[in-house]
């Protein structure tokens, strides 16, 4: 069974239109289990739309999405979403925010808080359990959003430009931590970004999306530097080559 379905997520001929505007046309893409796949492209290429269709938050106009072989009909416990603007409840503490996914699933208070506590420590927010989101920095808020997504223990993590609202240094730290997560958590990561460097740095597979009409132009699988030390990736010749190559092909789509 597990041998047969080696892709955790399969997108099959998905189209999406809003009235006359075509956001996605006949898009097909596979997301290998246990790996991180980036959706990279200029703004307006429909990458967030695709992610929300996979999340079950938006219905596709046609086509199908499969999670572990099961078609998506709506949001499900097999997926967890990390939001660009964090989407934390400002009236709730860090602990309640992290435990919220479990709270909605009816997990008892003591149990869900124990789980939340574990992930709060894992993302490095120990001591902030009873702080409110407005007392945290942007980077810390996204750690809360990440801990919330991790604590429901979903197979697939959907991340919508998760680091775009945090500062550059925090972002680099996040990217390194993300590599650790992909290694240690046995999960499949879908990662939307508009940063070429970020995509190449964190991804096992990069899907380059082009706008008008939206389609997958190319899928790139960096092979050489993934197992190296995180600190040397940015100096790796293959890393630099891929960054250059992607920029060369995206350049003409940037206004």
């Amino acid at each position: 069974m597990t041998g047969r379905i080696e892709n955790a997520v399969t997108v099959h001929n998905v189209s999406k239109s809003y009235g006359d505007v075509e956001a996605l046309r006949d898009l097909s893409l596979d997301f290998p289990r246990g790996q991180l796949t980036s959706l990279l492209g200029p703004s307006g290429c429909g990458k967030t739309t695709l992610l929300k269709i996979i999340a079950g938050l938006l219905p596709a106009s046609s086509g199908e999405v499969f999670i572990n072989g099961t078609p998506v009909t709506g949001p499900g416990a097999d997926r967890a979403f990390v939001f660009q603007d964090f989407a934390l409840m400002p009236w709730a503490t860090v602990l309640r925010n992290v435990a919220f996914g479990l709270e909605l699933r009816g997990v008892s208070r003591s149990e869900r808080e124990a789980i939340a506590e574990k992930y709060i420590i894992e993302v490095g927010l120990k001591g902030f359990e009873h702080s409110f989101p407005h007392e945290l920095s942007g980077g810390m808020r996204q750690r809360v959003g990440l801990a919330r997504a991790l604590s429901v223990d979903a197979d697939v993590l959907l991340m919508d430009e998760p680091f775009s609202a945090v500062d550059e240094q925090t972002r680099r730290k996040f990217q390194e931590d993300l590599l650790g997560l992909v290694q240690n958590e046995n999960k499949t990561f879908l990662f939307v970004t508009h940063s070429i460097e970020e995509a190449v740095y964190v991804s096992d597979q990069i899907a380059i999306l082009l706008p008008r009409p939206s389609r997958v132009m190319e899928v790139i699988r960096p092979s050489g530097f993934r197992d190296r030390d995180v600190n040397s990736i940015r100096r790796d010749p293959e890393y630099l080559d891929i960054v250059d190559r992607i920029w060369a092909s995206l350049k003409s789509y940037v206004e």
Partner: peptide
Amino acid sequence: SLVEMSRSFGA
């Protein structure tokens, strides 16, 4: 996105 968040976690 708060609404989407609650939906995505199955509210």
